[in-house]
Design a protein around this nucleic acid. Structure first.
Lengths: 343, 343
DNA sequence: ACGCATTTTGTAATCGATTGCGTTAATATA
DNA sequence: TATATTAACGCAATCGATTACAAAATGCGT
């Protein structure tokens, strides 16, 4: 018993002795159809448990109601939260979310884009991988007239919208906070790559130093690679200096964690001797016995906004490409790792 | 310049003065086509940058090469890791992964299933929500002849495969470990719901007590709801008892964390006075200053295996429904929260 | 009752790929 | 040389829904 043969508009049309066109129009609320037949069709469709075949419709219309999201890894707290935001905003509009991982490799990114375009998704949301340098594959998306929205990690490509947080401001906020806690020798563990976000965080850091008349000490700025070990190494390196820092602003929470572990091993009191702050507000930061100060990037909101940017674009004339740049405000969560009670 | 009109097999057929059927067959390696034309078609297809329209193919074949995954929330470490496992196993086979969230509500679960079936996915992977009681919506999936694979949280439905970890064994392992650390009054903070997983963890706990001749004390078993507050409450309740526990086995890491926080507030030494263990191996457990003992459910592997179960099913005769039950071994990670150095 | 305008419905092509069946051309066999 | 085989390819229907255009049905006025 395979049961359930799918019901089509032809089945309905036969039953009612009308044409399939009439059924189609009736179901689509076409005003050219009399109210009588429209209601009749609606009723029998319901009775026969008719479900529209979305494939056929997609083939005809060219729109699948599927959108693709490309992220480095889906099981990273930040990315999965963004995806959640996208999903929850788009589902009520009938969209399905397809996920892809780049594993931080451009080559994968290119491949994912190709297969997504081939599946005819209606939009691509993405955070570029660390290894992405040029934007040839991005341009291919635009050539196919598929909307594209960057979130968090973007590239400068004309015609592409993006939703990011104000990394400059975030960097500034953290640094200013550390300064207000009485720190004057603030180290910055930056990101290793060519990503804009790390550049801006660093610039925010610089701006805060300048505003408060603190010198920029090149030895205090170290490239780290967003892993715990990297934080440990950085502290080791910093503590070889004559004049040791009295604060550490890490551009990532894992690096901050590594730094804290190493500082503790050296019996350095946090936050009394050294204040530490991270970035991203990973779940673990607030669960630690010594909770870590961090910047929240409001990932779920970011996803929601990205989805809205796309929806707006759809609502407008399809052929016009809109380029919208949204910058969200970062939120600083001050926790024990840097809280000396000063304001 | 909208550029890029999509190339179809008709375009190729016109260029080569053959029929579209020939082009189609040539591209599909049909042996009825001569090697010459086959190669010619392949070459021109490449030159013209032909991409197969997957919608058209899906409409014809009934298979979309999309699969759906339904989880309570995608931004929970465990679930996003399972999804990662599924994605990475299925992508090489040309499948795309569509994600859906139930928000722990059966009503959503039902809706997601319906829209997924309507989109014609080739398989559904799911972890049932806490509120799911009956399996009517599940049966609907089977009636449509769509394969279904449960992971972690399953239901007993004939014809449905599942991949889970051995929760009984896991519960046993944790409890046995605590006993071997010298604990004799072991409390168990169980799950609040009707989910099988919590039942089995509890049974494993009981079995271990029995094996080592320890009494089962009903007051030591408390229903918790997988939140931090719940762990705090539980300890408050337990410490009102005459004879206080000397170990706590929580069926979830957040509950364990709450318990630890409360124990610390009461100046109770961990693990000297009380050993604590959690469940799930959430990332934060190993990053704490006092790392928490926990059970790893190997979520990524779980996803990978679930995907393999589906692939096997596809390889076999489509019409035959295979019911495969995979039980993965849990891994115990002993950390400071329960490590007294005994074995 | 007739003619014209307006509603309402039907016909058939279309979206792109697949495939059963039939046809042509080439080769093998008697 | 005539016929039987086989290889290589074309025709046309199909998957299910949409829609421009055509046709039929209805209404209205006189």
């Amino acid at each position: 018993m395979s049961g359930k043969e799918k019901v089509t508009i032809y089945d309905i049309s036969k039953k009612l002795n009308v044409s399939a066109a009439t059924v189609s129009r009736a179901l689509n609320q076409n005003p050219k159809i009399s109210v009588k037949t429209r209601e009749l069709v609606a009723k029998t469709a319901a009775e026969m448990n008719y479900k529209q075949n979305r494939l056929a419709q997609a083939l005809k219309s060219g729109r699948t109601n599927n959108i693709g999201v490309i992220v480095p890894y889906i099981n990273r707290s930040f990315f999965s939260s963004v995806i959640r935001g996208i999903e929850e905003e788009l589902r009520p509009h009938g969209y399905h979310v397809i996920i892809c991982q780049s594993h931080e490799e451009v080559s994968n990114e290119v491949e994912q884009i190709n297969t997504l375009l081939n599946t005819q998704i209606d939009c691509i949301f993405m955070s570029v991988s660390k290894t992405t340098q040029n934007s040839d594959h991005i341009k291919k998306v635009l050539e196919e007239n598929t909307p594209l929205v960057f979130f968090d990690r973007k590239m400068e490509v004309p015609g592409v919208s993006s939703v990011v947080i104000d990394d400059f401001k975030a960097g500034f906020m953290v640094t200013e906070h550390l300064i207000k806690q009485g720190c004057t020798r603030i180290a910055h563990l930056s990101g290793e790559s060519n990503l804009e976000i790390y550049k801006y965080r660093h610039e925010g850091y610089c701006a805060a130093l300048e505003k408060y008349g603190l010198d920029y000490v090149p030895e205090y700025v170290i490239k780290a690679n967003s892993k715990i070990e990297s934080g440990i190494e950085a502290v080791t390196q910093l503590w070889d200096l004559e004049l040791k820092p009295d604060a550490i602003f890490a551009a990532g929470d894992y690096v901050a964690l590594g730094a804290i572990q190493e500082l503790r091993d050296r019996n350095i009191k946090i936050p009394e001797e050294v204040c530490v702050a991270g970035f991203s507000n990973e779940p673990f930061t607030k669960y630690m016995e010594l909770p870590i100060t961090s910047i929240d990037q409001t990932p779920q909101l970011m996803g929601k906004i990205a989805a809205q940017v796309f929806l707006e674009q759809v609502k407008q004339n399809q052929t016009i490409t809109i380029e919208k740049k949204v910058v969200l405000p970062p939120e600083l969560f001050v926790r024990d790792s840097s809280d000396r009670g000063l304001k």
